[in-house]
């Protein structure tokens, strides 16, 4: 498994938000995670990416226990994530956002910046090429020098995907990638995710757009009130009466 959560529990004070949640993301697969609002999906992402500490359970990334690592170490270990409300370095341009997200830059330290300027310049050139390719891949060429704070919601989702890709992730966690995105851009986002999956990237995707998600993923998990209530192939999961009960009060 590329990402494996087992028996994860988490609480805000006395309020149990996650209760014995287990979930696996196999290599090169897209795994979906659905559930009504307040089910604990985004909290599961926060615990997985290291922003919240679990009360119990273990989190393994590519065979390595990362349960006790902080967010910086997890990101460096290959865990990339996006946010439900897209986040960006809003005063930086689209290009600068992507450049800033690249790991292991020699020029990010004061001394090497002055002591090995040639190496910094060569890395920078390679990095700029990579970023230019990524910007073309994400159809963001027209806004590449725009401060990212002024992008549309859909463009910000694309930029988030790009920022995560810059970190060479082993697994990518997408938190509602299609929310607030117009239908044309959703198709484009789905295409990008499929293409990346074909290249070997693994995904765990939270999404309320069930049609787009069930097209995309091979396995779907359903959470309700902090617990995992169903897992399996998308069509089987969506037909499960328990899931329909949790999601729509029985009418799906």
């Amino acid at each position: 498994m590329i990402l494996s959560l087992s028996h994860v529990a988490f609480a805000f004070g006395d309020f149990r938000v996650l209760d014995d949640v287990s979930l696996d993301v196999p290599p090169k697969e897209i795994v979906g995670l659905i559930g009504p609002n307040g089910a604990g999906k985004s909290t599961l992402f926060a615990v997985t990416s290291g922003f919240e500490k679990p009360l119990a359970g273990t989190i393994m990334l590519d065979g390595r226990d990362i349960t006790h690592d902080g967010p910086v170490a997890r990101a460096r270990a290959g865990l990339g994530r996006t946010f439900q409300v897209p986040r960006e370095f809003r005063h930086l341009t689209v290009r600068e956002n992507l450049l800033a997200a690249a790991p292991n830059q020699t020029g990010e330290n004061l001394l090497p910046l002055f002591l090995s300027p040639r190496r910094v310049r060569e890395e920078e050139r390679a990095l700029r090429e990579k970023v230019a390719d990524l910007i073309a891949f994400l159809n963001l060429t027209a806004v590449k020098d725009t401060p990212s704070g002024s992008l549309s919601g859909g463009q910000k989702k694309l930029l988030e995907l790009g920022r995560v890709l810059m970190g060479d992730p082993k697994v990518i966690l997408l938190d509602e990638p299609f929310a607030g995105v117009n239908p044309v851009l959703i198709d484009s986002l789905v295409d990008r995710i499929r293409e990346l999956n074909a290249q070997g990237y693994s995904f765990l995707v939270i999404e309320h757009n069930l049609r787009a998600l069930s097209d995309l993923c091979s396995t779907m998990h359903v959470m309700d009130r902090g617990a995992m209530i169903a897992s399996g192939a998308p069509s089987a999961v969506l037909d499960d009466p328990k899931v329909q009960e949790a999601y729509m009060g029985g009418v799906l």
Binding site: N97, E108, M166
Partner: peptide, 21 residues
Amino acid sequence: TPLGRRMRAVADNPDLARSCG
């Protein structure tokens, strides 16, 4: 410089900077 870019990134959104490693 790459260092300045990262300084501005940390100034802009420290949480996001952490999730970028």
